[in-house]
Design a binder for these strands. Sequence first.
DNA 1: TCTGGGGTCCTAGGACCC
DNA 2: TCTGGGGTCCTAGGACCC
Length: 455
Amino acid sequence: MYALVDCDNCYVSCERVFNPSLEGKAVVVLSNNDGCIVARSPEAKALGIPEGMPFFQLAERFPGQEIHALSSNYTLYGDMSRRVMNILRASAPDIFVYSIDEAFLMLEDAPLWLSSTSFKAWGEALAAKVRQWTGMPVSIGIAPTKTLAKMASKFAKRYPAYNKCCVIGNEAQRTKALSLFPVADVWGIGHRSVARLDAVGVQTALDFTRLPAEYVRRTMTVTGLRTWMELQGQDCIALDNLTRKQTICTSRSFPKMISSPDDLRTPIAGFAARCAQKLRQQHSMAQYVMVFVSTNPFREDLSQAALARTVCLPAPASSDPEIITAAMKAMEACVAAAAATTNRQQSPLPWGGAGSGPDLYWKRAGVIVSGIVPDSELQTNFLDIPPVLKEKMMRLSAVADTINRKHGEESLQVAQALRTLDPTTGKALTFRNSILHDRRSPFYTTDIRDIIKVK
DNA sequence: TCTGGGGTCCTAGGACCC
DNA sequence: TCTGGGGTCCTAGGACCC
């Protein structure tokens, strides 16, 4: 059996723990640069605010409503998540943290859990404990497969009578639940498949399970077939082997469009350094470094381009200099390829005159590292940089990691990732701290200066 | 004017290798 | 008129998740 523990409206709940005046009110949390709505309180959902709506449309579409909008505070959410996961880790033989706000608990080896009633009592007690110890409301679904457990957790969330825990423990419960559950809400079935399924009369999860297996395989590939089997009660979606990620990505939208390829260097060096840091955190190295750049798809008046180029390293690496150097090469290749294919057009920026302006205006870019291997398995390679130099670079990065752990992120960083100096404070500006967070709450749990004051 | 970020898996075609 | 089989890697896109 699996238990899926899911935080209710995670980001909004984190904010409410430290700002109880937000209880009962319509609250939304925004993405980076205060771009989109990524989390909504139940009150905000009840108003009809859709997920993913651009923030600037909120005032137009919901005039006169009292809606509290907050910038995202991932430092706070990450720390709250860690607290919740620690409680879960102590409550089950094995757990898999699936995302910042949910985890699967593997219950099969626990002799204690024999009947649906004991599962239910155990789940209710766990939800109450998490709520009491952290302030985070969670809903728990318990079932023989992960897909069914996800479904059960949605029932627990939707109906207060479940007291935060719903168990799908036998055949009658499974069939009943499937018949009441819209196929669109099934884990693994997205809007594309829903449209296709609707055309053949499939509305509920139960309808879906009654389709022939060959039809599901043909129209939804093997991933759709796995979902189909999981709903029948056959456990077949594996979550292990994910502790070491197979690709690592760092990407951002820019607050303003970037017209000069030179201005891409700083943010991309920063993304590359962050990827290298993430690699070292999971004790691995990467063979490939890919850079992608894209224009703003919402600016239909401008030329559009989205392209990516990959650089293969002579040997796997995880040091800042090696990853950054490769990323710079990949970026040059992207820009060269873009320049070779685009036609010139009038510049929309005030300083770029007609005919003299650059062709493309970049809005988003990122670095993806792949071909990931454990750093213990590094094979030496005569094409690679000399071992002494490699060793030096790795030690340099390790020292930087130690300093940043001790004195805070970005205490020490690669100069290539620095944009400029702030004219008033003299502090270095990075791309990261140029991102807008106008409405962010304090770092209540991770910065002593932000600690909550009790009168 | 303003439209997120980080992942996984699958499929398919082209370039290239022997 | 006739045009192999097996493989890797890259690029790109689709679909899905939170």
